[in-house]
Nucleic acid binder design. Structure first.
Length: 974
RNA sequence: GCGGAUGUGGUGGAAUUGGUAGACACGCAUGCCUUAGGAGCAUGUGCCUCCGGGCGUGAAGGUUCAAGUCCUUUCAUCCGCACCA
């Protein structure tokens, strides 16, 4: 990595003068202040205060061997700026820090090197701590926590036992990755492209008994609070989608000739008449009973294959549908039709009931499947349009419901026949199906003769899906709700005879193909025309509309039909309304060593018994060998495993799984409030004081961690342990700092910038922090720039030099209104920008401030400069605390800058005597006026018109309009 | 496919409510500092120009005295989820 080295301030010009001055030397002042801050413990937050509390922190890191990278530094630049700003704003600020220390990397490292995870973790934490101190983060180290400490995980285990007592922790069979060669369970991260990370052999799924947290019980509660969170929209929608609530129905299908019921979940009970087959997941328990002698072999093979498939294989196969017929049939309860039952892996075993009714006409996946296996497709929803303008249905008219049929009449040579009633009613030929019509086709032929008198028809075929519409017909004083089919009718216009029936009511016209669409006046006909051109007879994109082919429900709006159909099925006892969630319960069992042991004892008589609070923590035993053999390493620690049942005292065995690391990080924000408590996880009193977190900063985890903390906190709230349902009031999501080449920083690409190296190169922590915040808006990604940091260093250097020059100058005692206005304008800008977390513009305003001060400096220094320079130092403090502390002292203060009240601005001092008014003529800037701030509107307008350049553009014409925007512009329209 | 964003100079980015587009910084150019420059200081820097002005915020329309900002259509890039019935 190349780091540009800044140079000390030495200039050829006025060398003697400058040599007397102290130089800006971050490597000298930064360690000095860092030491002082550590010694006087000023950042330790008090648990009681007359000031309002403010709790801010970043997502605690996993202490990896690689140390902190620029991303961590960026996060702490944000949190620390906020913490320092809030402190100066008079808040009792808590900025704690901790370590998410359990995890796979330390265990993998132990397997490879034999170093105990406990030891490597300790080393890494020391390294991280040193790095954080080097940036000058104002952390309250007295609250430091480490999730792998027994004093901490004792309470993680305690929470588990509480969840267990409440039925929120339970055991269930679930599949787990298994390496048949190493004979061990693998974590997701240890499976690389379907192969074991160590031996490279294919892994399989193996069913094992595992522990779960019942997060699904809280799905609705979490969903309900989501909209109220002051969190980024994208996180909120990601969580909402993840929970994936859908309302629908469960419907029971009888299996033909058997005493079995096949229950499906669907969000579209209204489409049940279109269910032409059923599909069940390969995991479905009923499979063995549905197969027969003919199908058993193929089914078994398919199922075995599907279950063996890894996710990666499924992905690479894309969405190509596969499946097999079971040999059994189900009865559609809506119409009594016998429909085949298939097995396919596109139906997921874990969602809904693991079985679906397939409606191929209106579901793309079912459609693909039906196409591939040649299963019937029946359209039951017709696209529906409602007339607008003159065609809009009217309340005073009666509503007529009727099936219709329409003809797209063509000569087969690209010309189409349209029926013209008047300019508002141009449409295809068609009409209602009467009781006297034997078939739809008969009705069609009759209409064609009646309407346009065509008798010789060459061919008729269905041309597009059913469509429907609701129209008001003024001429007939009625509304019509119609649904029907479009047929392509080919005729030979040369041999047709005009009919005398209905002559004079309308005319007909042959139109070229390309003109048809824009001539049609009805939305429904245009839609039908488009699908005719696309050659579609079934339109899977049609989701809502009117029901067709649906018995008594024909003509019903699909949205209404959903409830009606469920009610109808319910009456017959074959269906019920049902809500499902995509989110599954949280699997927390890990067959690993480096985690918090699950505090359960298995007793032959009492089953799973939680370890009593007095016996907690269940300590992680020290082991010599970390390589798992068969089960987790813990299972081979027989002394540890064998214990007695807390209920009966009989010999029993400990649970050998450890908890998912996310469990440990789901409550750490509460532990910060009361980190040393040996009797409770936290005291309610302290939780009440500190909860919720006012600002939580991170750049990772959209759902997992951020959903789990919410879930646990909701449970804690139900246990009356915390004051609020939600743990985090405001969430700030920051972007990544990428490498200079625009790619992600990574060791393998060799483009990593080591923050300490930047500091040591002479730029110092202040320049690094300030630069990271100056790069751009914090929620966007930005690229590191070795040139850019030099610019920020230059700025700090100028601020430093300016202060030195002031201190050593001969001062006059002249007041300076311009200086004061500049100062107050800057205070306002910087303060409001920090409030909206716009650090980059706040820093830009400070740079501008320094630039302006340099310009004012040419008139020499006066005593009036003291205050503006103090404000500069105070405003700079959240970003560059070391240089600020140093300059504060040099300006004559012995108090702690951190707790000095943030400067305030006086609006009246910002207002200047004159304002600039822009003059526009026809929207173009033609002049600028300097007018007195209290000038009247008429004066300003007159002045504007009198401007030479304005007069030139206005000429001798009279302005039609002169608009005045107070204090901003005059707009002249001619 | 669904969801969430984002498109502004050579570059990173400003413009908080429709009111001077390009703040601030990088880079570049010119000059100054009696050695040097990866230092410092000063000035300039959207594009075109016949020096009057014209054109400019991904593209095309629209509303308005006035649009980066509002509306409609469209294109591109990034991120998250992804066979959830």
């Amino acid at each position: 990595m190349q780091v540009n080295r800044p140079h000390p301030v030495v200039s050829g010009c006025g060398l003697l003068y400058y040599q007397m001055m102290k130089r800006y030397n971050p490597s000298e002042i930064e360690p000095k202040w860092q030491q002082l801050w550590a010694d006087d413990k000023r950042y330790q937050a008090a648990d009681t205060s007359t000031k309002p509390k403010y709790y801010v922190t970043g997502m605690f890191p996993y202490p990896s061997g690689a140390g902190m990278h620029t991303g961590h530094f960026f996060e702490h630049s944000i949190v620390d700026a906020q913490a320092r700003f809030m402190r100066a704003q008079g808040n009792n600020v808590m900025y704690p820090m901790g370590w998410d220390a359990f995890g796979l990397p330390a265990e993998n490292y132990a397997i490879k090197t034999g170093t105990a995870p406990k030891d490597s973790t300790k080393t890494n934490i020391a390294n991280f701590t040193n790095q954080l101190n080097r940036v000058g983060a104002s952390i309250d180290w007295s609250r430091e926590i480490t999730t792998s400490d027994p004093e901490y995980y004792k309470w993680t285990q305690w929470v588990f036992t509480e969840f267990f007592k409440r039925g929120l922790a339970y055991q269930k069979e679930a599949n787990q990755w298994w390496c048949p060669v190493d004979k061990t369970v693998l974590a997701n991260e240890q499976v690389e492209a379907g192969k074991c990370w160590r031996c490279g052999n294919e892994v399989i799924k193996k069913s094992m008994k595992q522990w779960f947290f019942k997060i699904t019980d809280y799905a609705d509660a979490l969903l309900e609070e989501t909209p109220n969170l002051d969190w980024p929209e994208k996180i909120k929608t990601a969580q909402t989608n993840w929970i994936g609530k859908s309302q629908g129905a469960e419907i029971d299908f009888a299996v033909d000739g058997r005493d079995e019921l096949l229950t499906v979940f669907t969000t579209r009970p209204d489409t049940i008449f279109g269910a032409t087959f059923m599909v069940i997941a390969p995991e479905h328990p009923l499979i063995s009973q549905l197969v027969n002698d003919d199908t058993k072999a193929t089914v078994d093979e398919y199922v075995a294959n599907a279950l063996k498939k890894s996710e990666i294989e499924r992905q690479s196969e894309g969405k190509e549908k596969t499946g097999v017929f079971t040999g059994s049939y189900a009865i559609n309860p809506a119409n009594g039709e016998k429909i085949p039952i298939w097995i396919a892996d596109y139906v997921l075993g874990g969602y809904g009931t693991g079985a679906i009714m397939a409606v191929p006409a209106h579901d793309e996946r079912d459609y693909e499947f039906a196409q591939k296996f040649e299963l019937p497709i029946i359209q039951v929803v017709a696209a529906h349009s409602i007339g607008s303008g003159r065609d809009a249905p009217r309340d005073e008219f009666e509503m007529l419901h009727r099936p219709v049929v329409d003809a797209i009449i063509t000569d087969g040579e690209g010309n189409f026949l349209l029926q013209i009633e008047n300019e508002h009613h141009i449409h295809f030929v068609g009409g209602g199906i009467d009781d006297t019509d034997d078939t739809t086709e008969a009705a069609l032929r009759r209409e064609i003769i009646e309407e346009v008198g065509l008798t010789e028809i060459i061919s008729i075929k269905q041309a597009s899906p059913f469509s429907s519409g609701t129209y008001g017909r003024e001429t007939k004083s009625r509304n019509q709700k119609v649904w029907g089919t479009f047929f392509e009718v080919v005729v030979d216009p040369k041999i047709q005879v005009d009919s005398e029936i209905e002559q004079g009511l309308h005319s007909i016209e042959w139109v070229k193909k390309e003109d048809v669409e824009h001539r049609l006046t009805w939305e429904g006909h245009r839609a039908a025309w488009k699908s005719y051109l696309a050659g579609r007879v079934i339109d899977t994109e049609v989701r809502e509309g009117l029901l067709v082919n649906s018995g008594v429900f024909d003509g019903t709006q699909t949205s209404d039909a959903r409830e009606q159909v469920v009610a109808w099925l319910e009456e017959q006892g074959v269906g019920r309304a049902k809500t499902t969630y995509k989110m599954r319960d949280w699997l927390i069992s890990r067959q690993r060593y480096w985690g918090a042991p699950i505090p359960i004892i298995h007793c032959d008589e009492h089953g799973a018994v939680p370890v009593p609070e007095n016996d907690l923590p269940v300590l992680l035993p020290e082991v010599d060998e970390y390589e798992p053999r068969g089960e987790s390493v813990l299972a081979s620690q027989t002394d540890w495993v064998n214990t007695t049942c807390p209920e009966c005292g009989q010999p029993a065995k400990r649970e050998t799984d450890t908890m998912d690391g996310y469990a440990c990080s789901s409550w750490y924000l509460l532990r910060y409030a009361d980190p040393k408590n040996a009797k409770q996880p936290w005291s309610t009193e302290l939780a009440n004081y500190w909860q919720p977190v006012d600002m939580y900063v991170g750049g990772d985890h959209a759902v997992a961690h951020l959903l789990y903390v919410r879930f646990w906190n909701h449970v804690f709230h139900d246990m009356n342990l915390v004051p609020t349902k939600e743990p985090v009031k405001k969430l700030v999501y920051h972007g990544l700092i990428q490498a200079e080449d625009g790619r992600k920083m990574s060791k393998s690409l060799g483009n990593v910038v080591d923050p300490l190296e930047v500091i040591d190169a002479g730029y110092g922590a202040d320049a690094l922090r300030t630069f990271e915040l100056f790069l751009g808006p914090i929620n966007e990604n930005s690229n590191w720039s070795s040139k850019g940091i030099a610019g920020v260093y230059r700025f700090l250097n100028r601020a430093w030099t300016l202060t030195q020059e002031y201190l050593e100058a001969e001062k006059t005692d002249e007041p300076n209104a311009e200086l004061v206005a500049l100062e107050h304008r800057t205070i306002k800008k910087v303060t409001t920008d920090i409030h909206r977390l716009s650090f980059n513009t706040a820093i830009a305003a400070l740079m501008e401030y320094v630039n302006e001060l340099y310009k004012l400096k040419v008139d020499g220094f006066s005593e009036a400069w003291q205050q503006p320079l103090e404000s500069l130092v105070q405003l700079l403090q959240p970003f560059a605390p070391h240089i600020s502390a140093e300059l504060w002292q040099q300006l004559g203060h012995n108090d702690q800058l951190d707790f000095v009240d943030w400067p305030t601005w006086d609006e009246s001092l910002i207002v200047t005597d004159t304002v600039t008014i822009v003059v526009q003529v026809n929207g173009k800037v033609r002049a600028k006026l300097e007018v007195a701030a209290d000038a009247s509107e008429d004066d300003i307008k007159a002045q504007a018109l009198a401007e030479e350049n304005v007069a030139k553009f206005v000429g001798n014409k009279k302005p039609t309009k002169v608009i005045y925007v107070p204090g901003r512009l005059v707009s002249i329209v001619i």
